[in-house]
Design a protein around this nucleic acid. Structure first.
Lengths: 334, 334
DNA sequence: CGCGCTGTCTAGATCGTTCTAGTAGAGTGG
DNA sequence: CCACTCTACTAGAACGATCTAGACAGCGCG
């Protein structure tokens, strides 16, 4: 295990000064094409790679963004994946730090600060906005919009997402919709409010939750109501998220209610669950690339002292769990 | 955004030299109790935290472990979560780097090397062992055992896992087992071989894959055989992983075959899928804490030049997808 | 020829730590 | 009173990069 070569080694090998090697590697102005090649050749021969620690230490503008995410967060993995290219395009490096049951958000934030992150991207933060604002670097709250002036935020437009789901179902001919909400989960209030706003006074909302068992419980209620009034029963359900929707679909099918023929179901998140071959859930999709781009942009702006609050519009992935209602012309005719 | 305080600031505030502050913060010998307190008080007043970049740069023993993981890896999230406390206990810091469809393993490895990681933990590496061995720091291959002398490895004992599943089913009274394998997926060969070794010449293996659709396809084959010979058909299936098992269960139930009454199903990984309330899959569990501890230990050993190859025994999480076979006394009697 | 300019290159300070070598002062023993 | 050890502390050189200031050559221009 030979010692890692340094800039001085490369300089000696190429017969130039360290400073020049630095210039070449930052591809800054001030080096001739010929020397550039010579330096690169020497570096290649030695297997040199610049040491990020020293680089970060010296340059005030470190170019390092810290990302705090939850390992079990439904959508976090996809989003982090999308942030890598977005950050690279903007000239930022990324340092990841996970939070979870065994590691608090504060610990995750702290370790990123220690590494010298210039700004922090916090996915679905637990921490209160005031505390985030008090950190020594700017923070972008991702997936959770914030009102605080000193905390930028990038989130999906929940109202638009619910709007897409409702419009899709209405377009298929569904007259009576029901929303199974997320209970106390993050984002539940916004989605519920959006549904109520669209449906007006007659909006039917069943309290549920973000898990498949919550979905199962809510579906059981739905079934009971369905038996009570077979005609007035809803023909389509907008469920808080995919996991709950899975529980809903399972209970319905077990009870002999066909999906989508008897009841259409729309999920939310378009997670891997929704795409499973035997599920094929129509689901509201948050666009990871758009969110990632907006997030990196917000970080850059925040570094300049401007704290943006961005809402990214979602889209709808239509799969097999939605169809026109049983009585509608488009299914009976053909 | 005030500038971050440095060791010199703390030294000035406490009226001592920088070196002494360093001593106090590393809690090395050579400072009186009184000064220790004075320094901590001063640091607290200024909100000082040591700069990891400078610290890493100076001290050759950086204490930083790099972790490469896949954001969509079934078991990776749990494992990474468990590695944090294990690493902290051994005095290591962690830097995470993700690989995925948008970011190659080589990029992930490179960025960790740049950050100055002292050793790398690579979860389910893509890269060939020789290439890993050629990296300038020691590597631990996690979740995938390696034979290479210069690459340590920590993995689950696949044979033991399959053994647990088979023993569980045998214990319930099942005589005819079938294994739906993982096709070309990582670990599939080992699990298949283990199953064959246990079952001997009459081992029934159906080629499948690691996805739910592969599980569905394999289940369809199973159903056809079942129709052909209702008596000789297997009464229990050991499936390559949970996702495939999900597809299997779905197809079986849709065809009117009850799980577990008519056919018991065992998954592998004990992932979140297996725990879903409407699935309740019995599954082979890889113990994240044991793996994490073994991994960190292997890293420390690798740093000392000793490359361990460790197999961690799995356990079995019994849920509702397994039961004694239909004709057995324990179900008929009671 | 002298002057400024541009392009290429270098010396040396600097970032915030750790580490090595050493100093001052107190205590001990002969 | 000197030599010695021990404890508490400090000065200054690393670490490996970046950055500032300036040197030197070659060129065009008056």
């Amino acid at each position: 295990m030979a010692k890692r070569p340094t800039m001085a080694d490369v300089a000696a090998e190429a017969g130039v000064s360290r400073a020049l090697v630095s210039i070449v590697f930052r591809n800054a102005a001030g080096a001739s094409e010929a020397t550039r090649e010579r330096v690169f050749a020497a570096a290649g021969r030695l297997g040199y790679r610049p040491d990020a620690r020293a680089r970060l230490l010296r340059s005030s503008r470190s170019g390092l963004l810290g990302v705090v995410f939850a390992l079990d967060g439904a959508f976090h993995a996809e989003l982090v994946e999308a942030v890598y290219p977005a950050a690279a395009a903007a000239g930022f490096d990324l340092a990841l730090s996970a939070r979870g049951p065994r590691r608090t958000e504060a610990e995750a934030l702290g370790s990123l600060l220690d590494l010298g992150a210039e700004a922090l991207l916090v996915l679905a933060p637990d921490t209160a906005a005031e505390e985030l604002a008090a950190l020594p670097v700017p923070v972008v709250s991702v997936l959770e919009s914030q009102e605080h002036d000193a905390v930028a935020s990038v989130a999906t437009d929940e109202a638009a997402g619910i709007g897409l789901a409702v419009a899709h179902l209405r377009g298929l001919g569904h007259a009576r919709l029901v929303h199974l909400d997320g209970g106390a989960a993050v984002g539940s209030a916004a989605r519920r409010a959006a549904f109520r706003a669209l449906e007006g006074g007659g909006a039917v909302v069943v309290p549920a939750g973000p898990t498949d068992s919550a979905g199962m419980a809510a579906a059981a209620i739905l079934l009971r109501e369905r038996e009570g009034s077979p005609d007035g029963a809803p023909t389509a359900a907008v469920v808080f998220n995919d996991e709950a929707a899975l529980g809903v679909v399972h209970v319905l099918r077990s009870a002999g209610v066909r999906v989508p023929e008897d009841l259409s179901v729309v999920g939310y998140d378009d997670s891997r669950l929704a795409a499973l071959a035997h599920i094929q859930l129509t689901s509201v999709r948050q666009d990871p690339d758009a969110l990632a781009a907006a997030t990196v942009h917000a970080a850059a702006e925040a570094l300049a002292g401007r704290h943006e609050h961005v809402l990214v519009p979602p889209s709808l992935t239509v799969r097999a769990s939605t169809a026109p209602p049983a009585g509608s012309p488009s299914t009976t005719v053909r």
